[in-house]
Design a binder for these strands. Structure first.
Length: 380
DNA sequence: CCAGACGTTGTT
DNA sequence: GTCTGG
DNA sequence: CCAGACGTTGTT
DNA sequence: GTCTGG
């Protein structure tokens, strides 16, 4: 399940997107651990072994155990235990997820958990592949519902009734805003809060991290794993597992503050969440070398055959590259069978031109990053 | 006691 | 089938 | 998570 | 490091 994400915020924007209020009501932003802002590379197609932003309690980097301070670190996806002997390169192939059902007893995760090494994994959203009877896979992008006004000049929002919004407001503050809260959790009122983040609300997933020190010494390697749970009903028809999503500021805080919230309490946060929305995307995302924004653009299932406009869009997204020539323009009879396979399509958002533009809008500038990697040797 | 594994997903 | 690379 | 490789010898 | 199998 959770083996692919998108994380596209510029390193300098991540701290802003992680603004929160401390128990005194004061606004704070986590800071990057030394140099880590330069180790994270935004991408619309993040695979295990990449470094991505995670939040941890600052106690792990010199702060008091009880501190509310948070630190942003660029950790590597795929947990390498501190006791691992050998070359950690390529070790974490099977530790990108931790089953919540066994994490308290299995050595891989028990150790770090008992040391309070809980982290919050940040992303725009994650990808899930639905396997059809025919064996074909349809990828979906899954994320927190975004509020209106995103980016400032977006005039369209998802139709109401899209993602299952089970926003429970725990012990929130006085602010009764149901409108704006793009920051992690229930933000404050924007009107009197010019410092608030107005961009995308990042998905927050519960993770476990560890620190591995090379035998020969040198920089410690920080790695993490994403905890998984059974899928919530809303998305179970796509896939039967999902990441442990932390919905809201209170949950994020409790997962991070290991000095205040003991493990046996914190584990109560690990459970299926309904608070997500999603849309189908192109199989362009399948190959992790494809980093373009096309990975997150909504598609209409059954209409993935390139249309004139989609070709143009594709070409634009690819920017440098000429639109590839299709091998054969065989176009089977249009027998569109769109929509989610029946069960619970109720809270599905249907792609609209407007929605599409909202996804395109953010891809345009950021991609093009590492798509110039020379593939393997070429046969001669 | 020592040696050796230690993780996940999905699919059958 | 299984493992590595992304 | 998916995609793609998966092998050897000898010579430059 | 810690747990299981022998």
């Amino acid at each position: 399940m959770c083996g692919r994400t998108a994380c596209t915020l510029a390193p300098d924007d991540v701290p802003r997107a992680c603004g929160f209020r401390d128990r005194g009501g004061k606004r704070r932003q986590p800071r990057w651990k030394d140099g880590d802002g330069n180790k994270y590379f935004p991408s619309h197609n993040v695979s295990p072994q990449s470094r991505t932003p995670v939040l941890v309690c600052s106690s792990h980097f010199g702060g008091e155990v009880q501190t509310e301070d948070r630190t942003l670190a660029a950790m590597q996806w795929g947990l390498v235990p501190s006791w691992f002997k050998g070359d950690p390169k390529g070790f974490g192939y099977k530790t990108n997820n931790a089953r919540s059902e066994g994490m308290m007893t299995k050595g891989f995760f028990k150790g770090p958990l008992q040391k309070g090494q809980r982290c919050v994994v940040l992303a725009d959203g994650y990808f899930e592949w639905q396997t059809g009877k025919d064996g074909k896979k349809q990828p979906y992008f899954i994320y927190f519902p975004q509020n209106k006004g995103e980016g400032g000049d977006l005039e369209d929002k998802p139709e109401k009734g899209e993602g299952g919004n089970l926003e429970d407001k725990p012990e929130c503050e006085k602010a009764s805003d149901l409108e704006v809260k793009h920051e992690i959790g229930e933000g404050g009122d924007l009107e009197e809060d010019p410092g608030a983040w107005r961009g995308r609300r990042l998905l927050t997933m519960a993770g476990i991290f560890d620190r591995w020190t090379p035998p020969e010494g040198g920089e410690p390697l920080y790695t993490y794993t994403v905890i998984t749970v059974d899928a919530a009903p809303a998305t179970a028809w796509i896939h039967h597992r999902m990441p442990a999503v932390l919905d809201g500021e209170a949950a994020v805080r409790d997962w991070l503050e290991h000095g205040r919230v003991p493990l046996n309490k914190a584990v109560e946060l690990i459970r299926p969440q309904e608070c997500l929305t999603f849309h189908p995307v192109s199989t362009v995302v399948n190959n992790s070398r494809n980093k373009s924004a096309e990975c997150v653009v909504p598609v209409v299932i059954g209409q993935e055959k390139p249309t004139a406009s989609s070709k143009m869009m594709s070409a634009w997204l690819q920017k440098g590259k000429p639109a590839k020539q299709d091998k054969a323009e065989k176009t089977p009879p249009p027998n569109p069978k769109p929509g989610p396979p029946t069960p619970k399509p109720g809270l599905h958002l249907s792609p609209s031109a407007g929605l599409m533009s909202s996804w395109l809008k953010r891809g345009a500038k950021e991609e093009e990053r590492d798509d110039k990697n020379p593939s393997k040797k070429r046969k001669t």
